[in-house]
Design a protein around this nucleic acid. Sequence first.
DNA 1: AAACAGGTAGACCGATCTGTCTACATGCAG
DNA 2: CTGCATGTAGACAGATCGGTCTACCTGTTT
Lengths: 191, 191
Amino acid sequence: MSDKRHQLVMTALELFYQKGVHAVGINEVLAASGVAKKTLYHHFDSKEALVLAALRYRDDSFLHWLTRRLQTAPAGSERIGALFDALDDWFNSRVDELLPFNGCFFINVSGEFGEVDHPLHQQCSQHKRNVAALIHAEVQALGITPSRVAPLTDALCLLKEGAISMAHVQGDLTAAVKAKHAAKQLITAHG
Amino acid sequence: MSDKRHQLVMTALELFYQKGVHAVGINEVLAASGVAKKTLYHHFDSKEALVLAALRYRDDSFLHWLTRRLQTAPAGSERIGALFDALDDWFNSRVDELLPFNGCFFINVSGEFGEVDHPLHQQCSQHKRNVAALIHAEVQALGITPSRVAPLTDALCLLKEGAISMAHVQGDLTAAVKAKHAAKQLITAHG
DNA sequence: AAACAGGTAGACCGATCTGTCTACATGCAG
DNA sequence: CTGCATGTAGACAGATCGGTCTACCTGTTT
């Protein structure tokens, strides 16, 4: 992997995440990254390919970050708490590697590329499934009745997504705390 | 209110909602609505003003629709159920007046105009507060301990937002049903 | 020495963008 | 009758878009 390629992906992610994909032109990415246009089109076929690479990079770094954060707490219900604590840090821009909070990149991109069969939209969908799989594993580790694992996982994912949306659209930076409280009640009800 | 103006707002909403604001040019709106460009700029100062009008129109029609839907159920916990039943109809595009489902217009626009102080973003924020107020009133009508009204309202809003996001990004058209189940448990836990 | 991968700067292309403008038509109020 | 609001069609301006291209530079490998 070339150095310049990585530089392009990082810069593209920053700009697309902060301003939106359609609002940022290829020339802006080039100026910000200090890379020549020819080099960009040497590594990527099109702007869309660059966006896709940025989505994949974000998918990777987000999952790694979240995995690390969950491991800070002992397995069990405390891990679910750690999930929402992590979200709280993200919303309040206390996580450098996730960039200043501007909602969920994948939700934002899905809004710009609404068609279900669009490659960018599908990549966003894949990311959400990846995160859901992480949460699913933690719910299983709770040791609750197997038939209740799926519904609880769904509920936690709904709370997580809702918190992201509320934090971004309404600017409610306490959304993760609220979601954590609701999650606690659901887990208690399941126990 | 002029006839042409209303026609413009309706067409603009349809196109911006389905394809995104930046992806739709003013000329496309004009061609689809059969209105002259001069007329558009007679009624609106800019494209942004047209988007704002579309947001306001959507805010209005969504709130009216939801209010009507909630009233179909007797006041109390059944109204909360009716909320998620309504969402389920929306997600599955069974509500003509809300147009074919493509996520939440306000979440989508917030993604395209991320800056918190942007007029379009603020309009999106306002819409969410309006819906939250509706839900807050229904939660109060449950007659639960007053100190628990706000947390439960927050939780229901989180589930609602999460369901919209999951339905759109992941294409999970059963998201409203899942949210309804989680909501039921929360209400039971509160009672 | 030759060939090649990867890089630079930036001119250039055709398309599209928002917004302005001219020129003209219609219907209603003073 | 006059004036104004409202409408039409569409040319036009100036900027920006994604993407291609020429011309040149710098290492490394063969």
